Simulated scan of single mutants.
Amino acid sequence: MPLRTEGYYMRPTVIIGLSDDSRCMQEEIFGPVVCVSVFESEGEAVDRANNTKYGLCASVWTSNVGVAHRVAHKLKVGTVWTNCWLVRDLDMPFGGMKESGVGREGTQESLQFFTQPKTICTKIV
């Protein structure tokens, strides 16, 4: 396949050294961008991750399964990946918390959100 020369392309980018209140740390970036921060404790990491108005997804990277489960339950996001990223079965609900969307997409979770139930009663005469 030939290399495309038209359109827009952003190289994968790693950003370090930002304060928690910087725009990159506070907004959802839909692109090949990751912001990396150093933390001292599990609690600090959870607090800082939850300190934003968005909550679509998060990744937890650890060799300790207990830490992975504990942190995943404390994160205020719709999806948590552990030691992976963007692994998704379409039969599982997907959606964010806070200002990262309303409701869930996928499987039975989305039926109420994407449908409008109606009752029609008819008497045959």
Score class of each variant (00 low, 15 high):
residue 87 V to Q: 05
residue 97 M to D: 09
residue 24 C to I: 03
residue 120 I to K: 05
residue 93 P to C: 07
residue 115 T to E: 06
residue 40 E to I: 01
residue 5 T to F: 09
residue 22 S to E: 12
residue 48 R to S: 15
residue 18 L to C: 11
residue 124 I to S: 01
residue 100 S to T: 05
residue 17 G to E: 02
residue 30 F to G: 04
residue 45 A to E: 06
residue 50 N to P: 08
residue 89 D to M: 00
residue 120 I to L: 14
residue 108 Q to I: 07
residue 14 V to W: 00
residue 37 S to C: 10
residue 113 F to Y: 14
residue 74 K to I: 00
residue 99 E to G: 04
residue 109 E to K: 11
residue 9 Y to K: 07
residue 56 L to F: 08
residue 119 T to L: 13
residue 27 E to Q: 12
residue 72 A to N: 14
residue 19 S to H: 10
residue 89 D to H: 08
residue 81 W to H: 13
residue 73 H to D: 12
residue 19 S to G: 12
residue 48 R to N: 15
residue 104 R to F: 01
residue 87 V to K: 06
residue 50 N to Y: 08
residue 34 V to M: 03
residue 118 K to F: 01
residue 1 M to K: 15
residue 49 A to F: 07
residue 70 R to Q: 11
residue 69 H to W: 12
residue 26 Q to S: 04
residue 112 Q to P: 03
residue 12 P to Q: 05
residue 86 L to E: 08
residue 11 R to K: 15
residue 77 V to M: 06
residue 9 Y to E: 01
residue 105 E to R: 05
residue 11 R to V: 06
residue 55 G to F: 08
residue 46 V to A: 08
residue 82 T to Y: 02
residue 2 P to M: 10
residue 59 S to A: 15
residue 21 D to Y: 01
residue 51 N to F: 01
residue 17 G to F: 04
residue 54 Y to V: 06
residue 29 I to W: 02
residue 36 V to A: 09
residue 101 G to F: 02
residue 112 Q to K: 14
residue 74 K to A: 14
residue 61 W to I: 10
residue 95 G to A: 11
residue 35 C to E: 04
residue 45 A to H: 09
residue 81 W to F: 11
residue 10 M to A: 11
residue 110 S to F: 03
residue 26 Q to A: 02
residue 80 V to C: 10
residue 11 R to Y: 02
residue 109 E to N: 12
residue 84 C to N: 03
residue 53 K to N: 13
residue 68 A to G: 15
residue 36 V to M: 05
residue 52 T to W: 04
residue 80 V to I: 11
residue 26 Q to G: 04
residue 34 V to N: 00
residue 55 G to K: 09
residue 1 M to E: 13
residue 7 G to T: 09
residue 31 G to F: 00
residue 42 E to S: 09
residue 82 T to P: 00
residue 67 V to C: 10
residue 89 D to R: 03
residue 93 P to R: 11
residue 28 E to F: 02
residue 64 N to F: 01
residue 92 M to R: 02
residue 103 G to A: 05
residue 71 V to D: 07
residue 105 E to L: 03
residue 22 S to D: 15
residue 6 E to M: 02
residue 105 E to I: 02
residue 113 F to D: 14
residue 76 K to H: 13
residue 98 K to S: 11
residue 125 V to G: 12
residue 45 A to Q: 09
residue 119 T to I: 13
residue 119 T to M: 09
residue 46 V to G: 07
residue 63 S to R: 15
residue 65 V to I: 15
residue 34 V to Q: 02
residue 111 L to S: 08
residue 58 A to F: 10
residue 76 K to T: 12
residue 5 T to L: 13
residue 120 I to Y: 03
residue 56 L to D: 07
residue 27 E to D: 08
residue 33 V to G: 03
residue 17 G to Y: 05
residue 98 K to G: 11
residue 122 T to R: 09
residue 90 L to R: 14
residue 64 N to C: 13
residue 7 G to W: 05
residue 72 A to E: 13
residue 36 V to S: 03
residue 63 S to T: 14
residue 33 V to C: 01
residue 80 V to R: 12
residue 21 D to K: 13
residue 56 L to C: 08
residue 116 Q to D: 10
residue 123 K to E: 08
residue 64 N to S: 15
residue 43 G to V: 06
residue 36 V to H: 05
residue 64 N to Y: 06
residue 119 T to H: 08
residue 28 E to D: 07
residue 81 W to V: 03
residue 41 S to P: 11
residue 77 V to H: 05
residue 100 S to L: 03
residue 79 T to D: 06
residue 44 E to L: 12
residue 100 S to Y: 04
residue 75 L to I: 07
residue 14 V to S: 03
residue 18 L to Y: 01
residue 15 I to C: 00
